[in-house]
Write a protein that binds this DNA or RNA. Sequence first.
DNA 1: TTGCCACAAATTTTT
DNA 2: TTTGTGGCAA
Length: 839
Amino acid sequence: MTLHGQATYSPPDNLNEPQTEAVRHARGPLLVFAGAGSGKTRVIVYRIASLLAVHRVAPYRILAVTFTNKAAGEMKHRLTSLVGEDLTRDLWVGTFHSVCSRLLRRYADSAGLSKNFVIYDDSDQRSVVNRVLKELDLDEKRYPPRQVLSRIHHEKQEGRSPAEFEKRGFFDDAVAECFSRYEHHLKQANAVDFDDLLLHVLRLVEDEKSLAGEEIRHRFEHVLVDEFQDVNQVQYRLVRAFSKRTRNLCTVGDDDQSIYRWRGADVRVIRNFRRDYPDATVVKLEQNYRSTGHIVRSALGVIEPSSEREPKELWTDNKDGEPVLVVTADSEHDEAGWVVEHVRTLIEHGVSGRDIAVFYRVHAQSRVLEEVMRAERIPYQIIGGMRFFERAEVKDILSYLRVVSNPRSDVDLQRIINVPSRKIGQTTVDKLVQTANLAGTSLFDAIAPLCATSNLGTAAKKSLSAFRELLEDLMKEAQTAAPSELCEAVLERSGYQKMLEQEDTAESEARILNVNELIQSIVDYEEEARAEDQIPTLDGYLERVSLTSDADTIEEAPRVALMTVHAAKGLEFDTVFITGMEEDLFPFKAIDPKRGDDLEEERRLAYVAVTRARRQLVITHASRRAIFGQTRYGLPSRFLTDLPKGSYRNMATPAAALMGDRARTFANTFSGNSFGFARGKDWVHPQDRKPVSEPTSRAHEEQQSFLPKRVIEPSTHSEDRQQSFLPKRVSEPPPPSKTAVYVGRPNAKPEPLPQSRSTFAAARAARQVVQPGERYVERDSDVRGSSNMAIGGRVTHDIFGVGVVESVDPGPDPAVTVRFSGHGKKRIKSRFLRFIDVD
DNA sequence: TTGCCACAAATTTTT
DNA sequence: TTTGTGGCAA
């Protein structure tokens, strides 16, 4: 059965339309193209729920893989709410890495590892590469560690071992050598990198003769993959192998949102899925429930010029809403000022900061935005950037813990050997490395033999021995102490705590706080483990830390979120500002002309950015921008010219308006690439295109003397236009959206638009429209008619069908126990039930 | 061995 | 502009 292109309108909670019907019940290979905002997660969750409750598949036979812990957590959470804890507890829901790590712990022997292997992250990997380069006496100038590592990484993501290395030039001869030494060191240290987690499992599961592989192949009856456009070759082979026996492989993704090619993702996998599985059921979800008509059409306009994409027609039943606003700013400061000014206006008029997001292409753009936000006292949060577990002090302490758990981990040992300072300098460490290499042992094991030789000063011997005793001492402690106690012991006995306390600077104070937070995270882990009747172990904690990033947590605080477009994938906001929409910034143009540009991917990135907005999208660009210590003069991005006529309108900030003619002349005078970079072959510069934004030279009457201040493009219908930023109440039936639904009085008469000349007066009027309690709320808390939420009442459930209420648990999120015919008693949150009125 | 200064490099990032 | 790294002197 192949269904596609015939989506009909259906609210998100009606699961009877043919598409989702197929998704819920199809067997064999299944490919779901889920357009942006089409309710992808809902579809996957309902399929699993159906498999569990209707098809009676055992939970532990279902594997659902995602890319982030956050996505896995959400999926599990929604499933638990839908079908209850009993059915979901034993599901295999997790990231590729956590699933593989779990399997690998179980079959460590078969993979030639011991069970307490450590997981090396990015910086650990770099340390190994540095060591390898030194050993091979390779010049770091000619072989930058970063590039060497990324080359190795690339090979591993394609599933190749050092022996299978595909050399593509002289550089690779050296890299191949590094690769095999790198692998050697990891093995020596009983360590794996992130790629290895998958590779080891892949080798087992693809090995017909391996007993472990046989077991894993028989483990799962159903395999589901989320964000399928982001899988790399190894991940694809993995899920193929997992599902080889039953062929029940369900993949969900959107090739238009493939933005991680540089990270190994291979769009061809999703595009060629039908070639590998000719009998696959293909479903296309093309209705967008998230955004206004103008936004959906703009998104389509941006993505359509893309070649090679799977044909899809995103559409929506939602109202057109406000046109996309394209703003020309003079400089990055002007741009930031304009954006922040408008964020402020929104907040002053009752919009919560959490409904607003500001995107940029590169982190470097965030600084100016932050400065202005701070100056204007707008609460904001930066998503991404430095992560907690990457902070030096946190990594240091974790390295202590990891060495205690696995003394063979050389990278960790090297990290802490002289932190705090123990007078063990580079020379001594070099000698230690040499000794270890010669004897083929770990650094830790080389300490004693080195101290026994004579080519070391007495002082150095003494420090080294003391260091070794410290570690042995801690290892002994680890036998009996709980992880958190051990951590305290590390801080105490290593002198790390003292070092921080003595430093006594603002920075060291922050570090102490971070260390305390680390201890707290261990305590949290211990409590969680005990709650699940497990004994908290050091290894258990370390595993969790390695596979968790705190980037998974966006605070629910009412703060404006600032992030890169990449970080925005999977999120949605009422109002979105996309900044820096200029040629060579977005689409980004690498300074290094050797580096290939991927215009197609930039286009998809722009598509992702546009589709994050629910109600209002603002795109800004600046004529001039200081970035990376250079001033660039940028033309409006080519993507702006792809916005469909009628779905956007232009305006300029006062500064840009004043600069108007001059700026335009300047931009046009610049021949070719305005940044002076070499032009790529397929990188046609749109110099001949007229700028999308025609900066107006007439300043608006409201313009104040200080900048930045918004200028509304003079227009005969200025009243209407001035509403654009105001939290206008939706008065038609709520726009059905994946996670948000408008509650309040959906059938109320449309409010007359406030008629006023001044923006602020209009805003003030609009504020009255937004009543407390009428805000956007999570769809999950949309309590459906609860008139019959009493014992004996009849209810229906999307999966279990009709049932009778046996008991009620009131509260902010009420739950009820219901007896379903054919499914028995279930405890379910009432928001997942429809209560049937008996009158 | 440590600390300071000069210089280069500079997307996007999860696990 | 910022951040990280390498070389050199104390």
